[in-house]
Design a protein around this nucleic acid. Structure first.
Lengths: 149, 149
DNA sequence: CTATATATGCGACACAGTCGCAACTGGATC
DNA sequence: GATCCAGTTGCGACTGTGTCGCATATATAG
């Protein structure tokens, strides 16, 4: 498991005003197993505070994104146009989305870090967010495809 | 300039039925200077065939994507949630989006190709599409930011 | 405790993209 | 070149995400 920040502590340190709604949303994101989209986040957070509004969910996501506390993913639009969110990890990593079974794999490698440094240097570009997403077939699904032509 | 396929020839070779609408759309994408979103593609293609419907634009984009003839980009959602399209190039390349001025830079490097091979091998994953997008500040905008804190 | 800047809920809205269905057509066949 | 029909299109209504303005509520500093 990649090491993640504690969002609540970081939010306090950054002077973000902690309302009950934000607490519920942040805790939900922090404790989530997989990748949450806005709708799922809303539903889960409502278990902690039943009155959170949809607009608040979007505004909080925007806030956390601006502070670089969460990353936004598209996951190759495997399930429509929605976005997914995850706590920013210490290490950059990429996402592999299988078009067959929908499974998402994560992968980190020094080559990726090296690429990042190379890009920043060669383009004189100040990188804030970096998103590498890959779509294709996982080992299982590729084998199945092979069997049924 | 990165070498691109000739979409019309490739479409014919693939046995794609060439309607007047598809011809207009494909030629428009092929000759476009920058990155087109669906709306811009529609407007431009209408100059060649004034009756093309919005739905046809989306259906054609879907078709070309399925055939791997064009790539879909988000460009870090710099201008809302729409998608952008470009003719598939011979070399994989990445997109740098500047949050300051909105400029998009493209960049290709052997490190990226190496990363791709490494990912496919280590994860036993059959890669179909790969999208690396980076958001941040270009040299100009980073310097301006510095000057006005 | 109070003041006030900031955040929230609500409802209406914007916008990209999708779908079912009747009418049309590209291109294969004769 | 006429015929045929599976595949394509236009139309219009619809979804699903995400946004916004404004009146009300509240977290935090003093």
């Amino acid at each position: 498991m990649l090491k993640r920040h504690d969002l609540l502590i970081e939010a306090a340190e950054r002077g973000i005003r902690l309302t009950v709604q934000r607490r519920a949303l942040i805790e939900t994101i922090q404790e989530a197993k997989g990748h949450l989209d806005a709708e799922s986040l809303w539903k889960l957070a409502r278990k902690r505070d039943p009155n959170i509004d949809r607009a608040t969910v979007y505004r909080t996501i925007e806030l956390l994104k601006r502070h670089g506390m969460i990353d936004e993913l598209d996951l190759m639009h495997l399930n429509g146009e929605k976005h997914y969110y995850e706590v920013k990890t210490q290490k950059d990593h990429l996402h592999l989305a299988c078009f067959g079974c929908g499974k998402i794999e994560e992968f980190a490698t020094p080559t990726f870090e090296r690429l990042k440094r190379e890009i920043a240097k060669k383009n004189e570009f100040s990188i804030q967010v970096m998103r590498l997403e890959i779509g294709g077939l996982c080992r299982r699904c590729a084998a199945q495809e092979e069997a049924l032509p």
